[in-house]
Design a protein around this nucleic acid. Structure first.
Length: 353
DNA sequence: CATACGTGGCT
DNA sequence: TAGCCAAGTAT
């Protein structure tokens, strides 16, 4: 397949000058730290979601040493609500590794960057390019979509063979090192603002006349979607114990969902757990919409966490054990607590006010 | 190689 | 609305 590499990069860069995003909070710097933090936050997370978290995080952890010297719980508290908490734990671990093994200086070597926890091939390439001006190709969701459409690449990009093909294409299209940072930014901007998954704005695309998907009317079917499988669902039960305005919280294991965060203790869903339950609150869906009114008495919650199901039930008061603590609801709302649990705490604080 | 990992936007 | 997807990585 002939690759119009020069035209490809030049068009993207020219388009970017007029239509790209130039003033995101982590741009216009070559300091690897803000670039690194933003790249981690942006993994599987859209720009608009990241910005407020990024601002708060950088205000609290202004540099690598601040981050390395902080407690993990403090880092997680600033990540709470953003999701994929392994990112925060890995970011913190990596900061300590930079402090202890690299003298506090973020490494410039691509292999050394990629060796840090939480940094894979694409994130390492982005940091190497943005912070150190290296000639590195990235392959995130935006680039995969742009390349799959422009060059008519068939197959689900999650498949090894397809991903390898896309990586090879990304490498082959790479312009001179001097313009690589703006080029990869242009790729991502085009994917995010023009070549979107649904309803792409092909009329505004600088690659429209090259685009195979557009020429063959396959824009809607490229990139090939993930093979359909049943949405995974999980069910569990949680114990809500309250003493006045204090709630019992438990620090979760570092592995698994909500790792390292605080939540109500998980319990086996035995019948005796609901013997004294007579407050009902229903929350369904990721947005935490309430389904049933909150009544008085004790606690009985049904909480659906999309795409998983969590059933929360109350039992009786008991003393806190190691790894648990009684925390005022007001403080709990600010602590490192997953969104759905925080939603319940919010409802509790309103009900018991 | 397939799956787990969060939350929010979109259709 | 239920399902799919998003600036991916770790296991």
């Amino acid at each position: 397949m002939p690759i119009p590499s020069r035209a490809f990069a030049t068009r993207l860069i020219t388009w970017h000058a007029a239509h790209g995003r130039h003033d995101l909070p982590w741009q216009n710097t070559r300091d690897p730290y803000p670039i690194w933090v933003s790249e981690i936050m942006l993994q599987q997370t859209q720009v608009g979601t990241v910005i407020p978290y990024y601002e708060r995080f950088m205000a609290r952890f202004a540099n690598i040493r601040n981050l390395a010297d902080a407690d993990e719980s403090d880092v997680l508290a600033h990540w709470a609500g953003l999701g994929y908490y392994a990112r925060a734990r890995n970011l913190h671990r990596a900061a300590r590794r930079v402090r202890d093994l690299h003298g506090g200086v973020f490494p410039a070597d691509r292999a050394a960057i990629e060796a840090l926890p939480g940094i894979g091939r694409s994130t390492a390439a982005a940091i190497a390019a943005f912070a150190f001006g290296q000639r590195q190709a990235i392959l995130d969701g935006n680039v995969k979509r742009v390349l799959a459409r422009c060059f008519g690449i068939e197959g689900f990009p999650g498949e090894r063979a397809v991903e390898n093909e896309l990586w090879a294409l990304a490498e082959a299209l790479l312009p001179d090192a001097k313009v690589v940072p703006v080029y990869i930014q242009a790729q991502m901007d085009l994917g995010a603002t023009v070549c979107m998954r649904a309803k792409p704005r092909c009329a505004a695309c600088p690659l429209a006349d090259l685009c195979i998907a557009r020429r063959e009317n396959r824009v809607a079917s490229l990139p090939t979607p993930r093979p359909a499988k049943p949405v995974p669902r999980r069910e569990t039960a949680m114990l809500i114990l309250m003493a006045g305005r204090d709630v019992l919280l438990e620090r979760r294991p570092s592995s698994g969902i909500w790792g390292g965060l605080w939540s109500f203790p998980e319990i086996a869903a035995h019948d005796d757990a609901v013997a004294v339950a007579n407050i009902r609150l229903g929350v369904r869906g990721s947005s935490g919409r309430e389904m049933a009114p909150l009544e008085h008495g004790f606690t009985h919650f049904h909480l659906t966490i999309h795409p998983r199901l969590v059933e929360v039930r109350a039992k009786s008061r008991r003393a806190a054990e190691p790894g648990q603590l009684w925390m005022p609801i007001e403080d709990a709302l600010d602590a490192a607590i997953p969104k759905p649990v925080k939603t319940l705490l919010q409802r509790l604080s309103e009900t018991h006010a």
